[in-house]
Amino acid sequence: MSLKNVFTDWSRYRKGIEEGGFHDYEHMWGMAVDLNKCIGCNACAVACYAENNLAVVGEEKFYKGQAMHWMRIERYWDEPDLGEDRVKEFNHHGANFIPMMCQNCNAATCEPVCPVAATYHTPDGLNAQVYNRCIGSRYCSNNCPYRLRFFNFYSYYESSWPEPLHMQLNPDLTVRDKGVMEKCTFCVQRIRAAKDKARREDRKVRDGEFLPACAQTCPTGAITFGDLLTLHTPGGGVGETKVAQMWRDHQVELGKTRQTKQNPELRGYRVFEGLNTDPCVMYLERVREV
């Protein structure tokens, strides 16, 4: 059924772009990450380990690039062109931190290359990975421009969770076995639970009712998560989620390879947008007093 899903996604995506909206989506989960607030403390990454049964691979395998951090804080030093001094002796403006998690691209580069359609787009706008379907070709991770797909080169169950550490494992999701690709899911188990709860109470999922583990723990509240669909209701206004409002405020739109902003100074941008991946994560530029 997954090939069908892939075809459905593509046609839905095209239709979405043409008609200026994603009308038959149930949700379109998205994020806004404010780099003015992000302090690079790594709380989100460890929260992700705790929530999503991420394996600890150890020093050796980390060196080989086999670490499993679905969410990582990247840190870059300034290139010598910011501010007054061109060739600087010191990093006077601190570090450049950016939390990177699966960008849940609408035109995901990982999806079309999967030979078994183990990765596809859900009607929630999520880029899904079906573990039991994955055969480990690793095409998807090679095709991801963000390097946010992680492969289980080994079976980590014994080595990563020696007794009784395994008792901490979250039963809401699988412990992935050897040969399987995995990635950030926007904490789909939490989305699922929230939708179940909403259905039980005969209502729609409320904005802010649940958060992915990273957004919930973030000490500075730099990560905003929610449904972007309201971005596409004309006028927004009533019922617009916080995250959709942030996208609108910063004049960032889905379905574009380059944003045409009325006010080009607004901080919103998407990483590697020009590659036509159409990510669902918007970043707000870091700010420095120069």
């Binding site: 450049n96 100074e265 901080r267 990483v271 970043y283 530029e285 870091r286 700010v287 420095r288 120069v290």
Partner: peptide, 9 residues
């Protein structure tokens, strides 16, 4: 590359 972009205060 524009990964972390910075604006002035």
């Amino acid at each position: 590359r524009k990964i972390v972009a910075t604006v002035t205060a």
